[in-house]
Design a binder for these strands. Structure first.
Length: 274
DNA sequence: ACGTGTACCTGCACGC
DNA sequence: TGCGTGCAGGTACACG
């Protein structure tokens, strides 16, 4: 999925199309997403409700309605939204279609079906089981060197594993973990509890810079990621290590390596990152 | 309790 | 061309 930058770009792309729209009907495919959608419940609850705000929390999109209901959306690995006229043909792997009274529709397409949509209320949102365990946003005042130090000092895990845990800090996935570690010259294999204070500080700054730059660039153009208007983003042109196995490091010409950590690929420069 | 492996699902790129 | 294999941005759960 989309990691934090991609979800943020999707939010920004969708917002002008969705604010003020009121729901006519919701149509779902037969195949379930990660969690099956109760179509009748969705329709009964959201019929004629109006979208008033869209926010992002971690990698979740939260669509708020005028009656305090909230639609929690997660894009999984391959989720996409498209804004199309209701008359447009059904997309391949289209699993949810929300028609608005104004004639447009939003289509949720997700080939691997790892994404999901859940309905809740704004009152229940803070306690929602999907959100309650989330750590701080990487740009928030809570994500400080002191905070990360307290967590890492107690952890025997590799730093790359730790920084991808959404209970520690939200929004960092497999791509931006590798990119942030390269930018801070820290090996992904380092145990979290061996990081020095200045390395932790450097890592936080790298995470914030990488995520910020990716949002600016419109998210990464991995094939499954499409912005709300259907156009791919361009941050992947700026990847320093991700997907660059056996290619020369841009800084030192050493060969970029790919290793596996917890079943996921990690890319790094064994010379620049210690 | 914690850390790791694996399942969930489809498409695509690659080598033979 | 066709088939098998491995890999893909996510999370949740079952193990040891």
């Amino acid at each position: 999925m989309p990691e934090l930058p991609e979800v943020e770009v999707v939010k920004q792309g969708l917002t002008p199309h969705l604010l003020g729209q009121s729901i006519r009907q919701i149509i779902t495919s037969e195949k379930p997403l990660r969690f099956p959608i109760d179509r009748n419940h969705f329709n009964t609850t959201l019929q004629s409700k109006t979208i008033i705000t869209i926010e992002r929390r971690a990698k979740y999109l939260l669509i708020h309605f005028n009656d305090q209901h909230v639609l929690i959306c997660h894009l999984g690995m391959t989720g996409q939204f498209h804004i199309l006229p209701q008359t447009a043909p059904t997309l391949s792997h289209e699993h949810v279609r929300i028609d608005f009274h104004q004639g447009q529709s939003i289509r949720y397409r997700d080939p691997r079906r790892f994404g999901f949509m859940l309905l809740t209320t704004s009152a229940q949102l803070p306690q929602h089981p999907r959100l309650i365990h989330l750590g701080p946003e990487p740009f928030s005042a809570h994500f400080t060197p002191r905070y990360l130090e307290e967590i890492s000092i107690k952890s025997h895990k590799a730093i790359k594993t730790l920084m991808m845990e959404q209970t520690v800090v939200v929004g960092i996935g497999n791509i931006y973990a590798s990119e942030s570690l390269f930018h801070s010259n820290i090996s992904p294999l380092r145990k979290a509890n061996t990081l020095l204070p200045d390395e932790i500080e450097k890592l936080i700054q790298a995470i914030q810079k990488i995520l910020h730059d990716a949002i600016e660039a419109g998210g990464s153009s991995i094939s499954d990621f499409v912005k709300a208007d259907g156009q791919p983003g361009y941050f992947s042109h700026q990847f320093r290590v991700y997907g660059r196995e056996n290619s020369p490091c841009y800084q030192c010409q050493s060969t970029i390596e790919r290793i596996t950590q917890l079943g996921r690929s990690t890319f790094f420069c064994p010379s620049c990152q210690q």
